[in-house]
Design a protein around this nucleic acid. Structure first.
Length: 489
RNA sequence: GCCGCGUUCGUCUAGGGGUUUAGGACGCCGCCCUUUCACGGCGGUAACACGGGUUCAAAUCCCGUACGCGGUACCA
């Protein structure tokens, strides 16, 4: 088995692209096959300089490795289409020779003229096909001499697929079963553009054949052009690989997950944006894997390794799937909790340093330990600024609701106990606090709430015993003192 | 317009003729746990697009309609 991911460097890696890459990768790993990365850079006008680099980086971030590709190399290289032009020209020439393709000289104006001649309400998009090619300038309508003449004069031209009407093109899709198209509904696709470079359709089938690709797994947007590809394989006498068209990822409202549309709804489309937002790679991979595929049982949390043993094309769904950020966040929480605090601390230290001047990785690790079950994103720990410095303000609503007349008094009395406490530890603090409220005859809340407010400035958060143990005696006393002064007045 | 693909809780989905009072997960709501907020536990909310047919029996098979999505470029 040989599969490939063949992105076009016309933009940064898209979330849907990552899923396609993932499914290809999983299938290859599952079956001991080979995963090829091929860069389809035949569109000079939309080429984005650093897109290829982004694609490579994002795959690496996600943990998706490939066996052959640009940089990596392999026996079927080169792996950038811009470096394989000669081969496409050769195949195109063969197709012309066998009558399966033809040369066409029509420029943009001629094309538009044809379209406006035929355009009507019932035919808003006239095609260059068997019904219209007879009225155009091509090697089917011109004499051989005229064609040679134009070619020798260097007149710009393209090569088009010669689609004969009256045939039914049938292929079997691993996800959808048998799919059929009438050839009369297929246009004479441009194979070689006037700049001499191939279109996707030609380059793709040539490379898939030459690289020995056995399974083509790609997005559903390619389904309508698959009959053209089948025709091309047949014209060259090549085997058609197994086709599998994945359901499209839709926006949360069901529309296309286009950049504009999605970002309006707060859904980033570039993988790099998820990296920047701080998502765990395992979470994105896990979420994406389940978007259009399921294991058939009730498991939901999968590592990449788990996925490689569970994945199969048979369990890929057929209908479009809506992107749900909340579910992604849930996966992120799951993965965050499974990670060692020490690992997260190492990662977050630079940010903690920038925000709070925190240089102590062990301290950060303890802070993460107590915050882990409250975090959606790793960096959430840094939002709890009270872990690193005294609160600058106190939540007014919470104060007015729960700061009582005796709160300052209780707090001040407890501060005395704290200043004399021998065992400054989570357990020691808990013991002394409980002894204190017993002795004072006050309720737990009468002390806990003012204390929480003094230490954190907010109404909710981690265990106060843990918090005091973390920030230390001096800081605890100073925060209490300050709160008593600030809130009481 | 035409061509293609699709349609089970709001979302991701299981189920593919009788096992179904249609199961799980996210979300939401409630209860419990609890100093708080979370975590966790328990419970609840909520779906077979519609119409025909086939069959003793249809969410499941067939046809039609509606709706959604994709394609209809010298983009990929």
């Amino acid at each position: 088995m040989r599969v490939r991911f063949a992105p076009s460097p016309t933009g940064y890696l898209h979330i849907g692209g990552l899923r396609t890459a993932l499914y290809n990768f999983l299938l290859a790993r599952r079956h001991g096959g080979t995963f090829v990365l091929r860069i389809e850079d035949t569109d000079r006008s939309r080429f984005v300089e650093d897109a290829e680099q982004d694609i490579l980086e994002m795959l690496r971030w996600a943990g998706i490795t490939y066996d052959e590709g640009p940089i990596t190399g392999g026996d079927f290289g080169p792996y950038r289409q811009s470096e394989r032009s000669a081969r496409y020209a050769e195949v195109a020439a063969q197709l012309v020779k066998s009558g399966n393709a033809y040369v066409a000289f029509d420029d943009d104006d001629a094309l538009e003229a044809m379209r406006s001649r035929h355009r009507s309400e019932n035919n808003p998009n006239p095609r260059y096909d068997h019904t219209t090619r007879g009225e155009m300038q091509n090697s089917l309508t011109l004499s051989a001499d005229a064609v040679d003449q134009l070619l020798s004069e260097g007149v710009p031209h393209v090569i088009r697929l010669n689609v004969r009407p009256g045939e039914t093109v049938v292929f079997s899709d691993a996800v959808r079963g048998e799919v059929r198209f009438e050839s009369a509904t297929i246009d004479d696709q441009v194979l070689i553009k006037s700049d001499g470079l191939p279109t996707y359709h030609l380059a793709n089938i040539v490379d898939d054949h030459d690289m020995g690709i056995t399974h083509v797994i790609r997005g559903e947007e390619w389904l309508p052009s698959t009959p053209k590809h089948v025709l091309l394989y047949q014209a060259m006498g090549w085997d058609v690989p197994t086709m599998a068209h994945l359901p499209l990822i839709l926006s949360p409202t069901g529309g296309k997950l286009s950049k504009r549309n999605a970002e309006k709804q707060g859904i980033p489309v570039s993988v790099s944006q998820y990296v920047e937002a701080g998502y765990e790679p395992e979470a994105l991979v896990n979420f994406l894997a389940l978007l259009g595929w399921n294991p058939g049982d009730e498991r939901e949390v999968f590592s990449l390794a788990d996925l490689t043993t569970a994945f199969s094309l048979e369990r890929v769904g057929q209908s479009g799937v809506q992107f749900d950020l909340q579910k992604l966040n849930w996966f992120n929480e799951q993965w965050l909790r499974s990670k060692a605090s020490s690992q997260l601390a190492t990662r977050l230290l630079p940010q903690a340093r920038a925000a709070f001047g925190c240089e102590d990785e062990a301290y950060l690790e303890q802070a993460i330990d107590m915050m882990k079950e409250r975090m959606t994103m790793a960096a959430d720990v840094l939002d709890a600024s009270y872990l690193f410095k005294a609160p600058e303000s106190y939540d007014e609503k919470a104060v007015s609701k729960r700061w009582k007349a005796n709160s300052s008094e209780v707090l001040s009395a407890f501060a005395v106990v704290l200043s004399e406490l021998d065992a400054w530890s989570e357990q020691g603090l808990e013991v002394s606090l409980k002894a204190f409220i017993d002795a004072q005859g006050v309720g737990m809340g009468a002390l806990m709430f003012p204390l929480r407010m003094a230490l954190s400035g907010v109404g909710g958060g981690p265990s106060l015993y843990a918090l005091m143990a973390l920030i230390g005696r001096e800081e605890t006393l100073s925060r209490i003192k300050r709160a008593v002064l600030t809130i009481a007045t």
